[in-house]
């Protein structure tokens, strides 16, 4: 008898494709938030698969804080060219006018204005009623409770006590004008699943994930890459070339590198299996307090 086996990874893929199609079919104006990171790269591949042989029927959008790594922007351009999706880039002009940067305003203020507020502005500007994001539930404790369709009110706020129950694969797509959902097709993927999928599918990712000699300075236990001359150096601080890589990608002054020799996906996975710190601890913004992610989510951060 044929068993019709379906592996764990195939199940995750099928579930994500179902969600991506369901949103495209039942919302007026969806958009896929493209952060250029590895999870976004996987989500992008799943969107290609969902509508093959057709094109992706919604635009991708990158909320640019102007402090992203240069290599991320180069990679974004390359992907757009290779795959041919519609791409929107949004920069919060109010923030630009204020001269927003993480050094003078602090990491929290910078992230709030350029990322959180920028995202809200962009969603309002285009009138998107559904935004795909690449967040996973295993990333952080408070995300374990996030819905696949995460309902946001007119002010893009997330109320953990007022989320719709989600049963089977019957997602409730009803929103009033001005309200929206964030939808997380990768909710059930773990970091290991993401890497395995990248390897198996040969999905291109930003080279910053792989170890290389890069100029870094050490601050408060974090290795910060000197990606351009906007990073003010403290007295006595000189960038040193170190073989490092990044476990997550965000604004370069706010993203810590790790010393690493891993320059292939299997080596990254091997390093990850041996490593003793969880993924988001490389992000400077998360170490503020233990439940800070939850507060950011309430405000509309992904």
């Amino acid at each position: 008898m044929v068993m019709y086996n379906f592996s764990h990874l195939q199940q995750l893929e099928a579930e994500s494709i179902f969600i991506i199609r369901e949103v495209a079919a039942s919302f007026d104006k969806p958009v896929m938030l493209y952060s250029i990171g590895k999870d976004s790269s996987v989500m992008l591949r799943l969107a290609q698969k969902a509508f093959h042989p057709g094109p992706i029927p919604f635009p991708l959008m990158h909320v640019d804080t102007t402090f992203k790594f240069k290599e991320m922007i180069a990679f974004r351009k390359r992907m757009q060219k290779e795959i041919g999706f519609d791409l929107l880039v949004w920069i919060n002009q109010t923030g630009i006018k204020r001269g927003m940067n993480p050094f003078d305003f602090g990491s929290e203020e910078h992230t709030r204005v350029m990322k959180t507020d920028g995202l809200k502005q962009a969603l309002d500007h285009y009138g998107f009623d559904a935004a795909y994001g690449g967040a996973r539930r295993d990333e952080e404790k408070s995300r374990a409770k996030e819905r696949i369709y995460s309902f946001r009110d007119r002010f893009h706020q997330w109320d953990p006590k007022n989320q719709r129950p989600e049963l089977w694969n019957l997602y409730n797509n009803r929103v009033n004008k001005g309200e929206s959902i964030r939808v997380f097709p990768l909710s059930n993927w773990t970091e290991l699943d993401i890497w395995l999928y990248i390897m198996q599918e040969d999905i291109p990712i930003v080279p910053l994930y792989f170890a290389d000699e890069r100029p870094v300075v050490e601050r408060d236990g974090n290795l910060i890459m000197v990606d351009d001359d906007r990073l003010p150096l403290e007295p006595g601080e000189t960038p040193k070339m170190r073989k490092v890589r990044f476990r997550t990608l965000g604004c370069y002054p706010l993203t810590g590198a790790i010393d690493s020799e891993a320059d292939t996906v299997p080596k990254i996975v091997q390093e990850m299996l041996l490593t003793k710190t969880s993924e988001r601890s490389g992000r400077v913004i998360d170490s503020d307090k233990s439940a800070s992610m939850e507060e950011k989510k309430r405000e509309g951060y992904f």
Binding site: S7, H8, L9, L192, D193, W195, L196, Y197, M199, Q200, P266, K267, V269, Q270, L273
Partner: peptide, 11 residues
């Protein structure tokens, strides 16, 4: 590692 990853995906 490659073998390990494949096993993980096929479980």
């Amino acid at each position: 590692v490659i073998e390990y990853l494949k096993r993980h995906g096929e479980k």
